[in-house]
Nucleic acid binder design. Sequence first.
RNA 1: GGCGCCAUAGCCAAGUGGUAAGGCAAAGGUCUGCAACACCUCUAUCACCAGUUCAAAUCUGGUUGGCGCCUCCA
Length: 469
Amino acid sequence: MKIYNTLSKRKEDFIPLEEGKVKMYVCGPTVYNLIHIGNARPMIVFDTVRRYMEYKGLEVNFVSNFTDVDDKIIKKAVEEGVEAAVISERYIAECKKDMAAMNVRPATTHPKATEEICGMLEMIGTLIEKGHAYAAPDGTVYFRTRNFAEYGKLSHKNLDDLQGGNRSLLVSGEDQKEDALDFVLWKPKKEGEPYWESPWCNGRPGWHIECSVMSKKYLGDKIDIHAGGEDLVFPHHENEIAQSEAANGKEFAKYWMHNAFLNIDNKKMSKSAGNFFTVRDISEKYDLQVLRFFMLSAHYRSPLNFSAELMEAAQNGYDRIVNSVSNLNYLLENVTSDTISETETALLKEAEGFTAKFEEAMDDDFNTADAIAAIFELVKFVNSNTDGEKSAVFLKALKDQIVKLSDICGLLVEKKTEDLDVDIEELIAARQAARKEKNFARADEIRDELLRKGIILEDTREGVKWKRV
RNA sequence: GGCGCCAUAGCCAAGUGGUAAGGCAAAGGUCUGCAACACCUCUAUCACCAGUUCAAAUCUGGUUGGCGCCUCCA
C-alpha cells in the first residue's frame, strides 16, 4: 500500500509503526455552523482510507477532533446571547447527523478541545521549560519558531522566505513577539469570552496546540498518519509539528495526507461569493450517498469541481450500481437452481479480477476513481452474465462482491427489502392481468396510479420489478 | 515578491516511457405492447513549441492558460 506523503512529496510504502495497527489523526471541523460540502471531502476521503485499511486487516485507531473553542463560535454565541458551549454542542450534534447520512463512520474517539485544556497547559509548560516558548508580559504565550530548526519541513518553506513575505504582520500584540513568525500557544481572555486559568493568564488556547495535545493523548507521541485539508499544511500542521516535536522530542507523524479543495463552479467556495453549500442543503435534493460517490469519483489530491450537472451525472452513475444489485436480488428471490455449474465457477474466477483491480487502485495512494471504475466493470460483467437460469450460489457471490467493494468506499448500494402494502400488491397483480389480456390502456393507467404512490414498475424478462421513486 | 500545483473526448476522470481505463451525456441498434432497466455499436493521438529516446500523454526546456498556499478557512 502506497501513500503520498506531503513531507517527502512522494508516494511511500505504508509501513505501520506497530505491525497490524494504524494510528491516524484527522483534523476535524470548527463547530460554529452546519458543515459545508468542503468539510465533507476530508471526512469522506479519510473515512474511505480507514475502511480500506480495515478491509486489508489493519486495526485503525482513528481520532478526529471537534474544535469547540474559537472566535467564530464565540461570535455566534454572543449574537444568540447564549454560552459558547450551546453553539458548539448544537453543531457537533448536527455534524454527526450529516456524517451518518454520508455513511462516514464515527471516529474511534472524537475529542473536544475544551475537554483537553489540562493537556494543553502541560504541553505549553514543557515547551517553556525547554526554551521553545515564552510568555509575554500580558500573559500571551508564544512558540519560539526560530528555535525549531526543522520549521518549514512540511510546507517546504524556509523562514526567510516567510519573513520576506512583505505582508503587514503587525496585528495587535505583535510588538511583544520576539520574532514576527512566532505563533500563539495561549492567549488572554477578552471580556465575556470563555476562559481557563493558567500559570500565565486567564485565557484560552491558540488554534494549533489542541491537535498536538489530542493526538498525543489518544494516539501517543508518534503516530502513523496525520491528515486534513491541504489548506492546513501551513501554518496549522507545520505548527503542530513544531510544537509536538519540540515538546516530545520525537517525530510527530510518519505520513502526512492532504486532500485537495472542492470548488464550486470552478471557484473557491465562500459565503461572500454566494456559492456556499452546506451538506444539509445537498441532502434536500440528493441522497448523500450520491455526494459520497461524487467525492470519490476523483483522486483525493486533485481539485474537484462541484456543480449541479456533475451531481446529476453522479446520481446516474450511482444508480447504475444500485440497479445492478437490485437486479441480483430480484433474481435471487426467484432463483430455481442452487447448485453451481462449472461455467459459473469459471465466471466467478474471472470476476475476482475486478477485486484485484480494485485493490491495486486503492493500494496506489487510494485511487478511488480507478477503484470505482473497477466496480463499474464488475457491474457490467454482472449485468451481462446473469439471468433467471443462474444458481443461487453464483448470484449471491456476485452480489456480495459488488456490495463488499462498494462498502469499502462507504457506498451503500443495497436498498433494504421491504414489503409492499396489500393494496399495492393487488394493483400490480391487476396490471399483470390486464397486460395478459392486452388491455394496455388499463395497464398503463395502473402504472401511473402506482407512480403517484411513489412506486416505479419495470417489466423485466424475469417478471415485474418495482422500486421507490 | 516567495513556494507549489494543474492542463487527457461534449462533461467528469484514470493512466507517469511501449502506443489512450471507467462513468455521465448524445446517436444508432437489440430486447419490450409501451416505458424503464439491461446489452451491443459509435466518439480523443492527450494545451502549444522544441528536445531526449528505437519508443513520450508519460522525461527535459520553453510558451500559453487556469489554480493553490504564504491570512480564519477542509
